[in-house]
Design a protein around this nucleic acid. Structure first.
Lengths: 158, 158
DNA sequence: GTCATTGCAAAGCATTTGCAAGTCG
DNA sequence: CGACTTGCAAATGCTTTGCAATGAC
């Protein structure tokens, strides 16, 4: 179990920054707010564009720096993709399964409390000491399914 | 269950290429052999360097093309990493858990027959139709553990 | 001869780095 | 003031693309 830190996600992230001796600049706050309220796992570029609505002059380096900082503080989960931009999850920084739509890029998530233990047992099986883990399921989201087989009722396609 | 294709991995990959109407050039054969006999999930660059021992003039595009071809034929599993080069698995092209050492980059693998079903049930939970999945566990491999805590007997480090 | 394939070089992109200017404490 | 940050631009590194030359059938 883990002690639940009180406060909103924004407050938690601000606190994490501050207590680690980092300044909470307006830019950083804006990025934190975007991360906290984003549902769709934004890319660095999307974050950049949204920050620029309020701070038109922000540089991309600032966004990357801030993300890096929050990552190091365990406040942001980075989802790397080889062929696409990284996506960031500021809501649930602990590893959890993600569903990635290969058609539209949408990312959903599910809870799976046993995942951590599963990962740990896999690690132990080969003598690794686990530090982190990642479980992605690729497929078609409901919307993209209906887009491409509109007439079918739900059934398995082999 | 799945029908086991007979023949060595090299033969299987050659057959897959040929029956899809692609030529089996000496370069491609060399790349296939490297993929089939590599234990450590090589990068494209590592494959390139090994191919060049026999064909010093191969271009990187050839390596990437061939990998792409084999990927499309379901003969090679690509492991993408955002911050590092992709790694390729020509031995077990079906998704399976990988253990990635964050220290030395080594990649081990384990079998986990239930993973497919787990992924499928996660997908169903949110209405996705699963196409593929990936499960990576990051940590320290046995060698790197002993490198950094040589004196300790096996015990949990918090 | 035709067409897939190769090899080379240049292009693309996301991310990182360097550094002068700016800003908070 | 003095260190941390910022913004801009250039650099980095992997992968892809364009294209003329090559080679197989």
């Amino acid at each position: 179990m883990r002690t639940v830190t009180p406060g909103t996600r924004v407050e938690q992230m601000v606190e994490a920054l501050a207590s680690a001796g980092h300044r909470v600049t307006p830019q950083r706050l804006a990025i934190i707010e975007i991360l906290a309220k984003s549902e769709g796992h934004p890319t660095a570029n999307q974050i950049l564009r949204r920050v620029r609505r309020r701070f038109p002059m922000v540089g991309k380096a600032t966004v990357y720096n801030t993300i890096q900082l929050l990552k190091d503080l365990g406040q942001v989960l980075e989802l790397e993709f080889g062929d696409a931009a990284n996506r960031y999850d500021g809501n649930v920084p602990e590893p959890h399964p993600h569903l990635v739509c290969t058609m539209c890029g949408r990312i959903d998530e599910v809870m799976q409390p046993t995942l951590h233990d599963t990962a740990e047992s896999v690690a132990n099986e080969v003598g690794y000491r686990m530090l982190s883990h990642r479980f992605d399921v690729y497929g078609l989201c409901p919307r993209c399914q209906s887009k491409y087989e509109p007439a079918k009722t739900a059934r398995t396609v082999e």
